[in-house]
Structures are given as C-alpha cells and as structure tokens.
Write a protein that binds this DNA or RNA. Structure first.
Lengths: 117, 117
DNA sequence: TCTTGACCTGGAGTTACTCAAGGCCGGTAT
DNA sequence: ATACCGGCCTTGAGTAACTCCAGGTCAAGA
C-alpha cells in the first residue's frame, strides 16, 4: 500500500513515517518502479508499534536501537524483549504520574469550588 | 528561597524555571537586592503544578494562558477551572493509551516467548 | 493534451527545553 | 585586604522530534 494508507492505519503522519524511515526506524521498506514507497502489512504493524511506543514516551534513540536489533535477526530477541520490558515498567511509572497529577488537579478544583461558592 | 531550592522542591530544573519565567508562566517572582530571584512557598506550589502539568503533557501555550488568567484575578476562576477539567480529560485519554500500549507489548512479548522456546 | 492528485527530496521552522560562555556578587580562608 | 569559590545572572547556541513548505516527478483520468 501507499504511504498515505500506511499513515492512516498506523496513526503516524506521512512526514513522520518518512522521517522515521530516514532515521533507520523502519526496516524493509521497498520502492515501486516509480520510486514510491510500498508498505506491506508487516510494515504497517511495525509502524503501529512505533506509534504506540512514541505515544507512551519512548525516546527515538531507543526505537532506533530496537530497529537495529530487529534487523540483526532472531538472535537479538532477548535484547528486544528487555527493551520492551523496560518500556513496560515506564508505562507503570506514567500511570503513577497520571494519578499524582489527578490528585493535584482535584485539590485545585476543590479550592476553585470554594471560591465560586 | 533561592532558585536551586525551588528547583529541588518543584521537580523542574533551574534552567527550565528561568525559561518558564521568561515566557510568562510564573507570576510574582521577586528579586533580592542582589538581583537574584526569590521564591515564596506559593511560587513553589505554582512551579510544582507546572511540573505535573508538563509531565502529563500539557502544552506550554495552555500553561501560558492559565498563568495569564491567574494574573487577572479571581474573576477568571471559571476559565481556569475549565482548563484543568480539560486536562483531566486528557489524563483519562492517556491512561487509555497506556492500557492499549500494554496490550500491544504483551502480545509482542508473548511472540518472543514462543521464539525463545 | 492537459490537469489533478499523490508522491518525492531537501531544507526551513517549531516546541520545549538544555547546555555553555562569560560575568557579578557575597561569603569564607589566608 | 585580597584571593577564591559557589551560586546566581544573561545571552545565545544546540538538541530532539517532529512538521511544514517549495519545487519537482509521474501515472491516470477528462
């Protein structure tokens, strides 16, 4: 499929996809005879993963490392696994942050209510 | 108190505090006779709020608006309230994102386990 | 044939910091 | 008294991760 469809499916925008590819975050993107990128379903799965990793705060350098490991084949699965596990721990920390922030917002809003009464 | 202590208490780093002040995000920061910033406990509370808003993804423009409203007095409390309520909804969305990402990671990790077996 | 739409590259612009250079000032050690 | 030191100051450059734009190519439809 073309880049616009890959963008629509993955959640990333077209510029970001091109940027990610240039930075080595997207392996195995082929070109048609017209020089345009063609995305396989696997490409789209990969982009979708990148979308969610980004959305939850993984830095590009880590994604870069992850993509490089992927390119080296199955022998790197333990390393990739530990990257994802690390990220999973980060998600837990983010959830705590959201809870903390919720508390603070609740306190502020309560104070506002008092003023408004 | 001095800027380094305000940084330690709020979670923001000193450069960020100076930057935020220059951008109008921090009202009522006074200077001592030596020209250095002096932070009151209220200043620190404000910075702490900014820290958590930033940490949970509020864009600077919104914080700017929030600070400007604050500077205009109690009449703007309803507006400020709605900014915080909007942000609270964003927190809920972020929590959903974290859950989605967790699922995706779990699936990937499961696949890795199969390879490793 | 002419135009339209989706794609391409290269480069500039944006956001939100973060770091570094160079300088001032108040307090301590000699 | 003076030399030094840490912490502060401003200004400006650098960075991350996009995002947008200009100018150009190409295939397909009217």
């Amino acid at each position: 499929m073309r880049i616009s469809e890959a963008a629509a499916r993955s959640g990333l925008n077209v510029d970001t996809i091109r940027y990610y590819e240039a930075e080595g975050l997207v392996p195995n993107v082929v070109r048609g005879t017209d020089g345009q990128r063609r995305f396989s379903p696997d490409n789209v799965d990969w982009l979708t993963l990148l979308y969610w990793l980004r959305e939850t705060g993984m830095p590009m350098k880590v994604m870069q490392r992850f993509a490089a490991l992927y390119a080296q084949g199955d022998a790197t699965i333990p390393d990739r696994k530990s990257i994802l596990l690390d990220h999973s721990r980060l998600l837990a920390k983010r959830r705590d942050d959201l809870d903390r922030c919720d508390e603070i917002l609740a306190r502020k809003l309560e104070i506002y209510e008092e003023y408004l009464r």
